Amino acid sequence: MYMEPQNLTGVPEVLLLGLSEDPELQLFLFGLFLSMYLITVAGNLLIILVITSDPHLHSPMYFFLSNLSMADIGFISTTVPKVLVNIQTQSKSITYVGCLTQVSFLYLFGCLDSLLLTVMAYDRFVAICHPLHYTVIMNPRLCGLLVLVSFFISLLDSQLNLSMVSQLTFCTDVEIPHFFCDSPQFLNFACSDTSTNTILLYCIGVIFAGVPVSGILFSYTKIASSVLRVSSSGGKYKVFSTCGSHLSVICLFYGTGLGVYLSSAVPSSARKGAVASVMYTTVTPMLNPFIYSLRNRDIKRALQRILNRTT
């Protein structure tokens, strides 16, 4: 029987099927997500506290790192609390407004993460390739402007995805095989023709993900060419230790994120994609503080100074 298309606003709820429907795994998943969330928030707040309280870390690189930590807290807070509530209440539902809110904040903080990583790559490029002009180029005004521009570009990306999803119409209830709402998932349930939306989605992805990746590749290509011209092994090690933490975070974030979105085109891998999404939505924000604190001597020294003052 033919059903008239109805806007999603007429549907009382959307169902998030989550990572597994096995009741025996629910307690394990609850503990896993709760521990990852608490570690992420505590670790990133500690990074922010250390950077703001230690004058030795009041430099462009650590200014961008503190903003990255705030973006990571927002990124993981967009998805994990709802997962915990659904597991605790044994419910899979999320309201229409809640779903749109998730889409909006997911792309806001995800894009902000991406752009801040790009800005940090540019900062390392200037520091290594133009060390004599570093303090002049990376002045406080430019640093603040770069963060502000990154935020507004992320806001634009967020609103474009939100607008695209909110205009879709659906004939049936929406059951998303994921633990959070995402734009590509909605296209599979739309009644109307989604070819234009699909093209728009890929265009947005190419612009808002491709441009930052290109910027990072350009910066590190220039850095690599500068490193190859360094004759001493000690100088090369210093450059590697400076960029090692940032490169680790970039590989983890983009490697898992691109893998998930490339595999989303294959319907049979929807649940596998949901599992892989855990990597860039929760694991990467959780590991960032550990990567930067364990591989960064300045952060470790600042932590030691704070501990010495408190004891």
Rank of each mutant, 00 (worst) to 15 (best):
T135H: 14
S195H: 11
V147A: 14
N161A: 03
V14P: 01
S154L: 03
I306A: 13
R124T: 00
L217H: 01
T311G: 11
F186V: 07
R295C: 10
D298G: 00
Y107C: 07
V80A: 05
T169D: 12
P267H: 09
T118R: 04
S195L: 11
L200D: 07
H178P: 00
F290W: 14
D22V: 09
E175M: 13
V14W: 08
T242L: 12
L132G: 10
L187M: 15
R301I: 11
L200P: 01
L142F: 13
S93L: 04
N44V: 03
T196W: 09
A71D: 03
L142P: 04
F33V: 07
S69D: 02
C191R: 05
G273N: 15
K238L: 10
P289H: 08
I299K: 02
F180I: 05
G18M: 06
S233W: 10
T169A: 10
V97D: 14
S154K: 03
I51K: 01
R271H: 12
G18H: 04
K300W: 07
G144S: 10
P23L: 04
L17Q: 14
C243Y: 01
L116Q: 02
A121E: 05
G10R: 13
D157H: 14
I216L: 08
S214R: 08
V80F: 09
L155S: 05
S114P: 02
D173G: 14
S69E: 02
L8D: 01
R301C: 08
L187V: 11
S192N: 15
Y280P: 11
V165N: 07
I207N: 02
S225C: 10
T95P: 04
I76N: 05
L142K: 14
D298M: 04
L145D: 00
D157R: 06
G235K: 03
C143H: 00
Q90G: 07
V239I: 15
I39S: 08
T194W: 02
T40D: 06
S93G: 13
S77E: 06
V83R: 08
V85M: 11
I51R: 01
V97W: 12
V278A: 13
T172V: 07
L294Q: 06
M286T: 15
N197V: 03
Y202I: 08
P289L: 09
L294W: 07
S183E: 12
A276V: 08
L187E: 09
